[in-house]
Design a protein around this nucleic acid. Structure first.
Lengths: 195, 195, 195, 195
DNA sequence: AATGAATGAGGTTTCATTCAT
DNA sequence: GATGAATGAAACCTCATTCAT
């Protein structure tokens, strides 16, 4: 398995740093190679091309997201609690690794449509996680029985993503994790007054 | 006023078509000029540089968004109705101009950080419109009194945007405007069951 | 005669100012037109093309050089005095019009080989003036009888030109006319000690 | 040291040929690369940009001038002999490499002011060589004791340069080196008759 | 005569990828 | 496996000149 070879992670991590610090379009392969302390050519022993570095980067990190969130979710009983954990963990991981946050929220979105379609494939695993919470919520009666899974997922992911992007764009001036509970509340209850 | 000159709109419209059909990075100035039926150099009589075309494009179109939505909103009484109109109109405009939808949801996001910051400035007008609806809703008691305007706006815009992007990514296979009511419902009431 | 038409001199003078202030390569036709307070197209009613402006400029100014110097020379008896007057007047004219000095000593030399060949044609009149002084000097016994007219002219013009260029390059920090006598002395007597 | 790398000289030499044959403004990087039998991009591994090729070219060649002349001068006793050697060698080098002569006397002067200022820096070494001969001549009594070093240098360099330029402009129809002695004579003794 | 909007050719430089060592 | 020198395609923008008014 390629990801076991010594320089694989080295290059991925270098890519995160270089992209975060220089931006997507200034993240030349040679810069990544230098940061990873390997030769330019070595990159191509581990990755098919530059795009493959980015896909792999996203896979590794998004895999970590799913893994971490699944781990924490497993201890929770209700769909509502699971959703809270998902939001909290999502915000926590980004907050803990600002480089990663900049890369996923801003830089990687500058990739071309094709790359973004492939990134969406990777994202699928995360969206499935959200879907499973929604489905469980509907089954247990925690969520509305006629909730559209797709729409609900779009609202949940869209809101989390927009909140994270706004935070990054504002130079992380405030605490993202502290917003988790309010976001959770909002997603569950909506904007409207129930009087 | 530059936008009154006939070739200004001609070039903007050409840019939308070319970017939608070829993608952001394959939208060469020469292609746009050809589509607009002007010489390459003529572009530079109306726009400072290529980036300026994109900013102007976004300004024109987003201005149209805000204008149209404000027009329709003015006839509505409640904040809830106004939100519905905003979502409907947003989805309708994108649905009516698929080229525009592709450009705003996918292609323009590939621009560099600097350009996106300037795009955000333009977006500000739209976000202010959302904010004004939220504030009115809070004042009239239609929305929760302790609602965070910022968070609510992030949920509303994030959800609309994610829904639109998903629709574009899925090659506009289904009707976007038909989702407006369900999205509206969801934003107002959230996911949770109120039993 | 074209040079009688009202805007001819206006454009030439504008060209001197624009080239002096912006440099040869930044002296666009549109800038010259603006400075001359005429439309871009008007330039082409007076000049065949951009090169023609520069040739004409050089012709006008070099004609003035020759005219002025011939005027002053006519009053002098000896070839040696005539040479002194030539040097003095040459330095004086440049000193009186720093824009002109910058244009002739620095900027116009950036033109391409072809233009410079044509400029050399214009220069011919000035070089002929020098030649006539040398020939007269040889005939009257003031200059060495076996002096090569061509070499002597190259020394005289080369020295005057290099002195003027050095002065312009040094930002006209010192008085150029004050150097005329020493240059004259040097050209007549050379470097060597006659013991 | 970059000038030891084989392709460095290869590119410089190609630049001399291409500029001499096509003129400064028609000397595209792609032409130089082709002549040097390297890829366009390879140029940029050895030179910062196109201007850097020209500066380096001038440095290399002018360095060779100074080096060669210093070598030959060291064997000469008097300042007068040293000056003769300088003129002879200067003319000889240009005469031996007509491409180089065209480039230094005509083409390189078309560069912009900034480039020419940097070229002047390089020229400084050559002018210093002339100065040292003048100073030595003054000290040994070979040259006039009250000679201005600056003016004398301007005369010597101006005359040599003008003579070389005239020769190049006349398509090298006659022998430049054969003029060295007469130029030398003229610079030492001036034009005037000493009766 | 005068205008000025429109034209369109042309070149420097970057950087992902290769391959001989 | 690792290296890094070499490759070469590709595009934005400028500006001299024209010509309909």
């Amino acid at each position: 398995m390629k990801s076991n070879r010594p320089k694989y992670k080295q290059i991925i991590d270098a890519a995160v740093v270089i992209i975060a610090e220089n931006g997507y379009h200034q993240a030349q392969v040679s810069k990544i190679a230098k940061q990873a302390k390997v030769a330019d050519g070595t990159i191509y022993l581990y990755f098919k091309n530059k795009e493959d570095i980015l896909i792999s980067l996203f896979q590794e990190k998004m895999g970590y997201f799913v893994e971490q969130i699944e781990l924490e979710i497993s201890g929770k009983e209700s769909a509502q609690d699971k959703l809270l954990v998902l939001i909290k963990k999502h915000f926590q991981i980004l907050s803990d690794d600002v480089h990663l946050a900049v890369v996923t929220q801003l830089e990687l979105r500058q990739s071309n449509k094709e790359l973004r379609l492939r990134i969406n494939d990777v994202l699928r695993g995360y969206l499935n996680l959200i879907d499973s919470i929604i489905i469980e919520g509907k089954e247990t009666g925690a969520f509305l029985p006629d909730l559209s899974v797709k729409l609900a997922r779009q609202m949940i992911f869209g809101t989390i993503d927009e909140t994270a992007t706004t935070w990054v764009m504002n130079d992380q001036k405030y605490s993202l994790p502290k917003q988790a509970e309010a976001v959770h509340q909002l997603l569950l209850g909506g904007c409207a007054c129930k009087n």
